[in-house]
């Protein structure tokens, strides 16, 4: 936390800090400099140790050749990048689908009237089932099991894989949304209902806007997890970045393409992670402002 007197920006005319306060400011400055120096030194030590440990290892030469070949990296980059375009499109569709489905399930779980019991129970079991099942198994069931039925109009493996990702992530997002809905104080609902708003209007205009704002950080975090899991689609056959890397790896007898794909996934994640951090920071600030009010 910044102390105003430290920066001197808010100094009023005619105010001179007492000798005690000046000594305090000088001490704090020394502490700041010291902590920066210590952090830099320890980072340098750890970095040097890591480099020495890896490059000094007996098998380093062979690992470098099979994982870090610049020529193979250059050659496979455009192909892997082409595959990544599939991941990007898949991510957009799955993210939108999972957000909508998750929100729908969360809303079903808030319906109180007894008529809706079956829907509520269904929504609850959905979140239990798909949060518990490994994503890989859902993916296999949809991409290998469903086509096996030989039904007319079975969608492509890519669509089926996308559906698998969507239904699993919708289960997680549903719980995030539900947590948000339940975090809105009952007095807000009472106020809205006392004005004559129906349950639906109360949800739409009063509860959800507050709930979504609160759960934006965990929601975005789930989307970050989804963005790397779209790579699992490669296991079902479609040629995405990872599948392409696998093909290139087999062609060159060299693992470098996997590293290229990995690096591309990290690059793709950075903007979303940055947005998540920014939203989280903003939410934390707003919360501390609310607490201070």
């Amino acid at each position: 936390m910044t102390v105003i007197s430290d920066t001197g920006r808010d100094a009023e005319p005619g105010y001179r800090p007492s000798p005690l306060q000046r000594a305090r400011i000088a001490h704090r400055r020394r502490q700041t400099v010291l902590s920066v120096v210590v952090a830099a030194a320890s980072t340098a030590v750890v970095g040097v140790l890591a480099v020495v440990a890896v490059t000094g290892a007996p098998g380093w030469q062979r690992v470098r050749e099979s994982f870090l070949d610049p020529a193979i990296a250059r050659e496979s980059l455009p192909l892997v990048l082409h595959g990544l375009w599939l991941n990007v499109r898949l991510l957009v569709f799955c993210a939108v689908g999972a957000l909508l489905l998750g929100l729908a399930i969360a809303l079903l779980r808030t319906l109180r009237p007894a008529v809706f019991f079956p829907l509520r129970a269904l929504a609850a079991s959905y979140t239990y089932l798909f949060r518990g099942t490994p994503l890989l198994i859902v993916l296999y069931l949809l991409t290998f099991g469903v086509p096996g039925l030989r039904l007319q109009g079975t969608p492509s493996l890519l669509v089926l894989g996308g559906i698998a990702l969507t239904i699993v992530y919708a289960a997680y997002l549903a719980e995030v949304f539900r947590a948000g809905i339940e975090s809105v104080h009952p007095s807000q609902r009472a106020a809205a209902r006392s004005l004559g708003l129906t349950h639906g209007q109360t949800m739409r205009h009063v509860v959800l806007p507050q709930a979504l704002r609160r759960v934006a950080p965990p929601m975005l975090n789930d989307l970050v997890a989804l963005q790397k899991d779209v790579g699992l689609i490669s296991l079902a056959g479609p040629i995405d970045a990872i599948r392409m890397a696998q093909i290139q790896t087999a062609e060159h007898y060299n693992y470098t393409p996997y590293l290229v794909a990995g690096a591309l996934f990290v690059l793709m994640a950075i903007p979303l992670i940055a947005v998540t951090d920014w939203v989280t920071l903003r939410a934390a600030r707003r919360q501390s402002a609310e607490a201070a009010a």
Binding site: S187, Q188, A191, R193, S194, Q210
Partner: peptide, 20 residues
């Protein structure tokens, strides 16, 4: 009940304004 509440105004101890 929604139709009834339209005709009754209620004010709470903790104001309960919608913060958003």
């Amino acid at each position: 009940p929604d139709r009834v509440r339209r005709r009754i105004g209620m004010v709470f101890q903790s104001y309960n304004l919608f913060p958003h």
